[in-house]
């Protein structure tokens, strides 16, 4: 095992690097798209149900199917890393749009009225009151999206682009455990690190949630 790691250090590191951006870039795209989409469903309530239903349908499509159908719909090559990024962005968006909508809706009511009564204009109310109050729920969704993306990327190895999944296909071809175990351990560790990172950012952004505990 140790011999394998020493002998293949460069390859393992480049797989890990690819895994990181293949999984995190889609989360970023998902957030950027889901924030306005979630906001629109709160502003125009009739949009809520269609967005939730569409998200549910997109989310239930198996990843391998998405990886091969996307190149038929938009002009990316099946073997292009961009294909994986688009597919995982679809999942992240499907999950996060609903989370953002639910989080913003849960803030409505007394809180927004109080803000309006204090003279907050709509834009300032959105950024100063509603988004911060909705953060804990949105961050929970972000954690789920990030962790599941990290575990999904390796499926891409079947079509040739899969970060640490590359170690799994190699292990299978050689009937050799070491790369598979290294891949699993690194993937789980990466998920744990990103998950803790989000938790730390959330603690830093929402100090009031801990005020009562003192």
């Amino acid at each position: 095992m140790i011999a394998y790691i020493q002998g293949n250090q460069a390859r393992i590191l480049s797989d890990l690097g690819q895994h990181v951006w293949l999984s995190l870039l889609p989360v970023l795209v998902g957030v950027v798209l889901a924030l306005p989409a979630g906001y629109l469903t709160v502003r125009y309530r009739w949009l809520y149900q269609p967005v939730v239903n569409l998200g549910g349908i997109l989310y239930s499509v198996p990843s391998l199917a998405l990886f091969v159908v996307i190149p038929a719909i938009i002009p990316v090559g099946t073997l292009s890393p961009l294909n994986i990024v688009v597919a995982l962005s679809v999942y992240s968006f499907a999950l996060l749009a609903r989370t953002v909508a639910d989080a913003l809706i849960s803030v409505q009511g007394e809180t927004t009225w109080a803000a309006a009564a204090m003279g907050f204009r709509p834009l300032r109310q959105l950024f100063g009151v509603e988004l911060p109050m909705a953060l804990p729920v949105m961050m929970a969704g972000l954690r789920v999206a990030t962790v599941s993306n990290i575990s999904l990327v390796s499926v891409g190895a079947i079509i040739g682009v899969g970060g640490l999944g590359d170690l799994f296909t190699r292990g299978l071809q050689l009937s050799y455990l070491a790369p598979i175990i290294v891949g699993i351990v690194l993937s789980v560790l990466l998920a744990a690190v990103c998950d803790s990172g989000i938790v730390l950012v959330q603690r830093w952004l929402t100090p009031w949630t801990r005020a009562g505990a003192r």
Binding site: S154, V155, L164, F168, L172, L177, I181, I184, S187, V188
Partner: peptide, 19 residues
């Protein structure tokens, strides 16, 4: 629940098959 979500599905399949 959290651990299960972070397990790479393809990695686990490969592990079982090689084992």
């Amino acid at each position: 629940g959290n651990a299960g979500r972070s397990l790479p599905t393809f990695g686990l399949l490969s592990l079982m098959v090689v084992l």
